[in-house]
């Protein structure tokens, strides 16, 4: 019996759908995170980073 026979019998194709759901959940979490209030200050500082070559915008 070859590996492909064993794997073929294991019905793995359902995993693709599980992975997709996992991805969607993770993605929604990220969206909520990005648009949650209270992060604006960090983002404002971060967005200025390219404009100053010498001074860290988000030190510590």
């Amino acid at each position: 019996m070859r590996l492909s026979d064993i794997m073929g019998a294991a019905n793995l194709s359902v995993y693709a759908e599980i992975a997709m759901i996992l991805f969607i959940v993770a993605f929604i979490a990220i969206v909520i995170l990005i648009f949650s209030p209270g992060r604006q200050r960090t983002y404002d500082a971060a967005s200025r980073m390219p404009l100053d070559d010498e001074h860290p915008q988000t030190p510590r």
Partner: peptide
């Protein structure tokens, strides 16, 4: 998850 099924499902 994209590749495994094509490779292993006969």
């Amino acid at each position: 998850f994209e590749i495994i099924p094509t490779f292993l499902i006969k």
